[in-house]
Simulated scan of single mutants.
Amino acid sequence: MIDLHVHTAISDSSLSISEVVRLAKDKGISHLAITDHDTTKGLQEAIKVGYEIGINIVPGIEISAYDYQRDKRAHILGLYIEPGHPSLNMLCAPLVQRRKQASYEMFRKIKAAGYDISWVDVQKYEGGTGVYKQHIMHALLDKGYCGSIYDDLYKRLFQRGNTPKTQGIAYIQLEYIDARAAILAVREAGGIAILAHPGQLNNYDAIDEWVELGLGGIEVFHPSHQEDDRQKSMLYAQKHKLVITGGSDFHGFYGDKPIELGCHELGEECIDELLQRIKR
């Protein structure tokens, strides 16, 4: 079994790199892609732990991108990228910094609304690239303000919306990375650019264009995908000869629903195809 979409505490998972890799070993996973948001930090550690316990680590990244032509979010996975490649670092570093600033502003809004948490309460959960909304929610959970990370309080605080009335009281819009630039950066870093969960963000109408830029794969199997999403994604994969990938999008305790590691629909033939594409 493989899993080509997994997060660690480096970004927004509740489990450390070592914990995630060792859990994958327990689940019988042979190939695991670490795809933390907008960073390759921690990949060398993951590769080392994987080597020690007998799991092949696929070095990856998930870039928080935006399709500015169609005004919608898009997530681009990079698989078999070179950790620390300058193209990825230069592209993602400004977003990481913007997220850090936005997270602190969100915290201040929540504090001003009367919630008794401190920045220290929040920071103790961040694992390397700054605070995420999940870390703020974890601190609120500790204080008894909610029963889970994604209960009604999450929506009241962070819900996206087109107007201030429909947005959460702490919502701040982030400026994301252009999806086209993300695809190019993944290619420059020696990897294969994969469109993550296109059904979740409705990115199908951009695929024809992005293939011309070098999009090499599509995530057909994802927990958010229903059968119609899988079928539609498969059709685009066949049309453009894209690598079919899949993963759990694992976030540990910070997931919006319980998710187990592993993608049962795919086997090591997917890894073989990815490696063949890289050689070409």
Rank of each mutant, 00 (worst) to 15 (best):
Q226E: 13
N202K: 13
M234C: 07
I207H: 00
H222Y: 08
S233R: 01
P223I: 02
N202F: 13
D205Q: 13
L201I: 09
L213R: 02
Q200T: 12
S224K: 12
V211K: 03
D228W: 13
Q226G: 15
Q231G: 07
K232L: 11
K232M: 11
Q200R: 15
Q231S: 14
F221H: 13
E209F: 08
E219H: 02
P223H: 03
S224L: 10
M234Q: 14
V220T: 07
N202Y: 11
N202C: 13
L201D: 10
I207F: 04
Q231K: 13
I218C: 10
I218Y: 02
S233K: 01
A206K: 03
Q226C: 15
R230D: 06
D205N: 13
K232H: 06
V220N: 08
G214F: 01
S224G: 07
M234W: 10
G216Q: 05
G217H: 07
M234S: 12
H225P: 09
E227K: 14
W210I: 03
L201P: 02
W210P: 02
D228I: 15
L213P: 00
G214V: 00
I218S: 06
G214S: 00
G217I: 12
P223A: 07
D208K: 15
E219P: 05
L215A: 01
H222T: 06
R230K: 12
P223R: 08
N203Q: 11
K232P: 04
K232I: 09
E212K: 07
G214K: 00
Q200I: 12
D228E: 15
M234H: 06
G216L: 06
I218M: 08
Y204R: 12
H222C: 08
G214T: 01
D228R: 14
G214M: 03
N203T: 12
G216I: 04
S233N: 01
E227W: 09
H225A: 13
E219M: 06
V211C: 04
E209K: 08
D205R: 09
F221Q: 08
D229G: 04
S233V: 05
P223M: 06
G216F: 06
K232F: 06
D205W: 05
F221W: 09
W210N: 01
G216R: 07
K232N: 04
Q200L: 15
Y204G: 09
L213T: 01
R230T: 07
L213I: 02
G216V: 05
D228H: 14
L215E: 00
V211G: 00
V211M: 04
L201C: 06
N202Q: 15
V220A: 07
S224I: 05
D208A: 14
L201R: 09
R230Y: 02
L201N: 10
D208V: 06
E209A: 07
P223F: 02
M234Y: 11
N202R: 15
L201G: 01
N202H: 14
E227A: 15
Q226F: 15
P223L: 03
S233Q: 02
N203A: 14
A206C: 08
S224Q: 07
R230I: 11
N203Y: 08
E227F: 13
Y204A: 08
N202T: 11
H225K: 10
K232W: 04
D229I: 05
Q200F: 15
N203I: 12
F221E: 07
L201A: 11
